[in-house]
Design a binder for these strands. Structure first.
Lengths: 205, 205
DNA sequence: CGCCATTGACCGACGGTCGGTCTATATAAT
DNA sequence: ATTATATAGACCGACCGTCGGTCAATGGCG
């Protein structure tokens, strides 16, 4: 049987199925054959739309992170709050984002998703770096933050926090453990951002 | 032709060859066949010593990082310097360690080494976390550092700094760029560690 | 009719397995 | 002390299923 679809729709179908399988079974453990079999299309169709398995991974992650980041950017632009409030909003959002690929993927062993995580980290950084830098600049202008290297600090924080929150060595059900992590983060951020402790405090909870 | 060797030596040979190939061609681009062909041994021999390609990667990285961390530990234990000096020593060492796998691997595209880097990061963290925490505790006892969450701060810093130093977006020959990165790091560390600015300053260069 | 989305048989390379061989050493018999 | 025998485990390479990827053929639609 041969069904011709709107190319955009077909591409979406492929990406959706790939996304589902990557999340439930891991990237390496998902074969191109599985994707096309589940969809009932031929392998050639897959390679008509994507030139490699890695390319569809990139497309899936790009699409996900674009949506995510655009949502946040839209909110920030239409609200006129200060840098401190913006930063708290974004950080809380990121930290509570145990929805999304990272979370759904958690039950799959990491070693079957090395490439996925690497690419996710890259794209996450790529999308959020400009947002955070902009916020820090605003906060510096407003004399709320006091720091000399907003770009570099954004880099360390973005990368460090992400990796930091991914460490779940102990029973990650333990909410006390998470609480301590967040408290420590508050201390670190307060210090690094150089905020006036009397007027502002990092509140992540 | 069949040559029987001391098993430890054979294992070393396999690990050395694997290491060389992983570094020069990348992990994914190195096949088990290449390793055994270069050594002139049969594939069965490889699987007699390692139960998977991934296992030899782990053995190689474990061996490398063990050596590295043990060297540092030995130095720290036989010297009786304060926490501040110890931390500077370790940080400089880590930062200048653009020798070692990370550096040698740089000319290979990262996407052919996702699993290698993931595992390297894990093992790096695993080996250095206890060292840094110990140093921070010492420095706190000596009233040099002032912070509440040495464990968590070590986590963020270790992970953040590593990822941070790996970003080489612009021409990484540009020493001014590296200098700015290090200056920013100095500022961050100074703040996070809560050091008395008059007596101590983070000096990474 | 011409275009291109779609098909699925096909390919080489890969990681990994397996039945079996060879040799060095320990043990027992002479 | 010397020789036969048994055991362990290092070593071999043909073989396997699966994978990502290719491509010539073909069917459907503007």
């Amino acid at each position: 049987m041969r069904t011709v679809k709107d190319p955009l729709e077909r591409k979406r179908d492929l990406m959706d199925m790939a996304s589902m399988l990557f999340l439930s079974r891991g990237y390496e453990e998902t074969s191109v054959n599985m994707i096309v079999e589940q969809l009932g299309v031929a392998k050639g169709t897959f390679y008509h739309y994507f030139k490699s398995k890695e390319e569809i991974l990139e497309a899936v992650l790009e699409s996900y992170l674009d949506q995510y980041a655009e949502g946040i950017k839209a909110f920030l632009e239409e609200s006129s709050i200060n840098g401190y409030e913006k930063l708290m909003f974004v950080l809380k959002n990121i930290l509570s984002n145990n929805q999304g690929p990272e979370h759904l993927t958690k039950h799959v062993e990491d070693n079957k998703n090395a490439r996925l995580h690497q690419m996710l980290d890259e794209k996450f950084y790529e999308k959020f770096y400009p947002i955070i830098v902009e916020i820090l600049r605003q906060g510096i202008g407003e004399k709320i933050f006091h720091l000399q290297y907003p770009e570099e600090i954004t880099q360390v924080l973005l990368l460090g926090i992400r990796a930091y929150m991914h460490i779940h060595i102990p029973n990650f059900k333990d909410s006390q453990y998470m609480k301590t992590k967040l408290q420590a983060l508050e201390e670190i951020l307060g210090k690094v951002l150089g905020m006036d402790e009397e007027k502002y405090a990092v509140r992540l909870m």
